[in-house]
Design a protein around this nucleic acid. Structure first.
Length: 484
RNA sequence: CGGGCGGUAGCUUAGCUCGGAAAAGCGCCUGGUUUGGGACCAGGAGACCGGAGGUUCAAAUCCUCUCCGCCCGACCA
């Protein structure tokens, strides 16, 4: 982490206490808050706007590849939930149930689960709409919120209710379903890297970390600035497990009944937390331009009414160009002093700030300040929209490169469990190692290291040498990390 | 869900040990002077002290229960 001057004074320094820093930034940047009901989050406009940008980007991607949005019910009958044994076993501890309803709080005959995810109800319903191979693939998605009864919560990262999209697709062949899960993982990677500027490791989860009921789970894992990994979403291939449990079948060309192959995949408001933790600094947020609710903050500077009129007229001269260029900007006319406004927009992580005073008006220029480098440069107003667009693009790129450098500087290659344990006593980051594939040994890594887990299996690269735990020939190359 | 700590104005807290008219700073509102990195003066609004019950002539303060938050752990696909 770079040295920073104390530009913003109202947040705990990241280096002093990362967790406190995180909570203070999220709240003081007006992104989210607690609601008074335990674990239930309020997402405020500044945080929600980032989520909206993510939603739009992802929604465009999946529409392009033929997915359709649906709305399935919030409440799930118990018998629907119970059908896939592994799935329900995995989710049982965090399901909330509606057991009473109505003015007299009458006990329901059959309790209804509040969806923790919708595989079960979609499976139970979608079978109606799938009869022939001609109905396949069925590519569904829904934007909604789900409830998981978590015991410990953090804003955006883990709350009892969170907002996400859940995609559920049904295919005629295993190959097609596997390709679907791969495709979605590529989309997720693009959201993380191209939109949020957070570089990720992509790969397969170990069997112990695989989604309940899935054949395999794919994941993207980002590295936060405190050195902990964050699972930034997953994509699952179910084989025929759900199709079997819910009898989702179709007639093939030969008029034989076959079970569908299915997938599911989800991406949540947790990503907003990844933006905070992946880019922030001691002064607060740094928001990637592509998802920034405000990309450019304009701070007018003047002494008196005459000065104000002059600056206002000057800004009015070129602001419409920014609007026309689709730049999300705000002119800060609040009755505050410039220094307050600087700190305010820095805390909120607005990529570019324009300081505009009488001297600038005379010179036909503005002072542009970069939130990342804090460099100040004079920018002529002639051609300002094109210049700012280019600067924002450059900012997005710089932010990604900085995060990529951070990730590389914090990625290591080790051979034995002892080395891994010693490493995580000192620092964080990713550690690549080789593993034989034994689940008990995987559990040993976690217990003996104090929480280090296998985050990703890299299937592209052959493992070198021996398993870090048992020393037998390795089958997998894996990335280890402590994670959120 | 266990262990520890906390909840008093929008925020941060003092007051609680030892019961006896609810305070401060910041923020907010009004007016004025100000404004290129965080101003100042004057006036003002704002709190049933998280909630319920109890002890007492009297409770922010003592007791019980409960809700919410923070830290640690378990759990977290």
């Amino acid at each position: 982490m770079e040295e920073q001057q104390d530009f913003v004074k109202e947040v705990t320094k990241m280096s002093d206490d990362f967790d406190r820093w995180y909570t203070e930034v999220v709240r003081k940047a007006e992104m989210a808050d607690w609601s008074g009901v335990r674990g239930m989050m309020v997402v405020r406009p500044y945080g929600w706007a980032m989520w909206e940008a993510i939603m739009r980007a992802f929604d465009d991607m999946i529409k392009e590849s033929g997915h359709e949005n649906w709305a399935f019910p919030l409440l799930i009958p118990r018998e629907f939930l119970m059908k896939e044994a592994e799935h329900i076993e995995g989710f049982a501890p965090e399901v909330a149930w509606v057991t009473k309803a109505g003015g007299r709080m009458e006990e329901l005959e059959d309790p209804l689960a509040i969806r923790p995810t919708s595989e079960t109800i979609i499976g139970a319903i979608i079978r109606r709409y799938i009869q022939s191979y001609r109905d396949l693939p069925k590519l569904t998605n829904q934007w909604n919120s789900v409830v998981r009864w978590e015991m410990r919560s953090r804003l955006f990262l883990r709350s009892r209710e969170f907002w996400w999209q859940e995609g559920h697709t049904f295919h005629a062949s295993a190959k097609e379903a596997i390709e679907e899960a791969d495709l979605i993982l590529r989309y997720y990677r693009s959201i993380a890297e191209d939109w949020l500027a957070v570089p990720v490791l992509a790969g397969k989860k170990s069997p112990a970390e695989t989604f309940p009921g899935a054949v395999h789970t794919l994941t993207i894992e980002g590295l936060m600035r405190d050195g902990l990994a964050l699972q930034m979403r997953t994509s699952h291939y179910f084989g025929q497990n759900f199709a079997n449990a819910y009898d989702i079948s179709f007639s093939n060309r030969e008029n034989e009944r076959e079970l569908c192959h299915s997938t599911s995949w989800g991406m949540s408001t947790r990503l907003v937390g990844a933006v905070v933790m992946g880019h922030g600094d001691d002064s607060g947020l740094i928001v990637p331009p592509k998802v920034a609710p405000i990309q450019v903050a304009v701070v007018p500077i003047f002494r008196d009414d005459a000065g104000r009129s002059k600056v206002e007229a000057f800004i009015d001269g070129w602001a419409p160009q920014l609007k026309a260029a689709g730049i999300r900007f705000r002119v800060d006319w609040r009755d505050e002093r410039p220094g307050d406004k600087y700190a305010h927009w820095e805390l909120k992580g607005v990529p570019l700030r324009l300081n505009v005073g009488g001297r600038d008006a005379d010179a036909g220029q503005v002072e542009m300040v970069d939130r990342l480098t804090r460099e100040k440069v004079a920018v002529p107003v002639a051609g300002i929209a094109a210049r700012l667009s280019a600067e924002l693009e450059g900012f997005q790129k710089k932010l990604f490169e900085r995060a990529l450098k951070f990730q590389r500087d914090n990625t290591f290659e080790l051979e034995t469990l002892d080395e891994v344990i010693a490493h995580y006593r000192e620092k964080g980051g990713f550690v690549w190692a080789s593993w034989c594939g034994d689940t008990d040994e995987e559990a040993r890594i976690k217990t003996e290291s104090g929480g280090v887990t296998i985050r990703v299996i890299d299937e592209e690269t052959k493992p070198s040498g021996k398993c870090l735990v048992c020393g037998e020939p390795a089958k997998f190359r894996v990335a280890l990390a402590k994670a959120y």
